[in-house]
């Protein structure tokens, strides 16, 4: 029982990473209706920018805020320059664009900052949290930030005009234009916000997984999985999904014999798929009724 509780706790701690990334995934999915495979790389690049700022002597929180702003603008710029021209192209062509963006960012980061792993500071410290060896204060801080972020997003989408406009543009674009919403800019805004949230995820994850150009590969996959499990349309679902995936992964590694580190990912994914087969819209997703 002790082992079980501990593994669940550890799962929640890693789950916070996935939850954070899943939030960014849901954000962009809401705005553009597909998954952005380059999102992890964007987050990684943002994290490197913050690291660079700190190297130049800027204190942590200033670098944090500056990176947030830069990532927001960067996300918008990527949409305006690279993806707006593809707005009328087929979906699969857009997916190819995400893969191209992935390659560009990954390779550029490698050239600028090289592939050696770097230490990344945490503002929360890394002492055991409340005496538990399994959760450090950093991980507790990460969970706290994720929850705050979730509350902030909830407020933004429910109670601000621009949040309402973004939701409308994502759900029925044509009607949104007919009430005067510039849907094209809403998409850009969605990219900006997703990029900013991704940068928060990156900066929180970096102390745990260390900073290097390939740091987000695995995290993004779990982030996708968490978002899909939670139902893609629900930021709340994404966060819950993140924690569940973290716990799943840990328990599978502990209790299923023969599962090494390598098989953890496929097993977690298989579990999620089983859930989806039973509940195709995810745990908290709206079921969209299809009619002819």
């Amino acid at each position: 029982m002790e082992l079980f509780t501990n593994q669940v706790l550890a799962g929640i701690a890693t789950g916070a990473i996935y939850a954070c990334m899943a939030l960014a995934v849901v954000m962009i999915y809401q705005a553009i209706d597909h998954l952005n495979f380059a999102q992890g790389e964007m987050a990684m690049f943002s994290t490197f920018i913050s690291w660079q700022l700190m190297q130049w002597g800027i204190p942590y929180w200033a670098a944090f805020v500056l990176t947030l702003a830069l990532s927001f603008v960067g996300g918008i710029a990527i949409e305006r320059i690279l993806f707006k021209p593809l707005a009328k192209a087929p979906i699969l062509t857009n997916v190819a664009g995400f893969i191209a963006l992935f390659a560009i960012i990954n390779s550029s980061a490698g050239l600028i900052w090289d592939f050696t792993i770097k230490q990344y500071p945490t503002p929360f410290g890394s002492a055991p949290f409340l005496g538990s060896q399994l959760i450090s204060t950093h991980q507790a801080g990460m969970i706290g930030v994720t929850v705050l972020l979730l509350l902030g997003l909830y407020f933004f989408f429910q109670y601000t005009k621009i949040g309402l406009a973004m939701r409308a543009a994502a759900s029925v674009p044509e009607s949104a234009r007919l009430v005067g919403i510039n849907t094209s800019w809403m998409i850009a805004l969605g990219w900006g916000m997703a990029s900013a949230i991704g940068s928060i995820a990156g900066m929180l994850i970096a102390p745990v997984v260390f900073l290097e150009p390939n740091m987000m590969g695995g995290v993004l996959i779990y982030g996708f999985a968490a978002a899909v499990l939670g139902g893609l349309t629900s930021p709340f679902g994404a966060v819950v999904g993140g924690f569940l995936v973290g716990v799943f992964e840990n328990l599978a590694g502990t209790y299923i014999p023969g599962v090494g580190n390598e098989l953890k990912l496929p097993i977690a994914l298989a579990l999620i798929i089983s859930v989806l087969v039973v509940k195709p819209a995810g745990l908290f997703g709206r079921h969209i009724v299809k009619r002819v």
Partner: peptide, 15 residues
């Protein structure tokens, strides 16, 4: 050094 980025740019050009 930048082969990935060049590949990405070429892919973008094609699409």
């Amino acid at each position: 050094g930048l082969s990935g980025a060049v590949f990405g740019v070429l892919l973008f050009l094609v699409i």
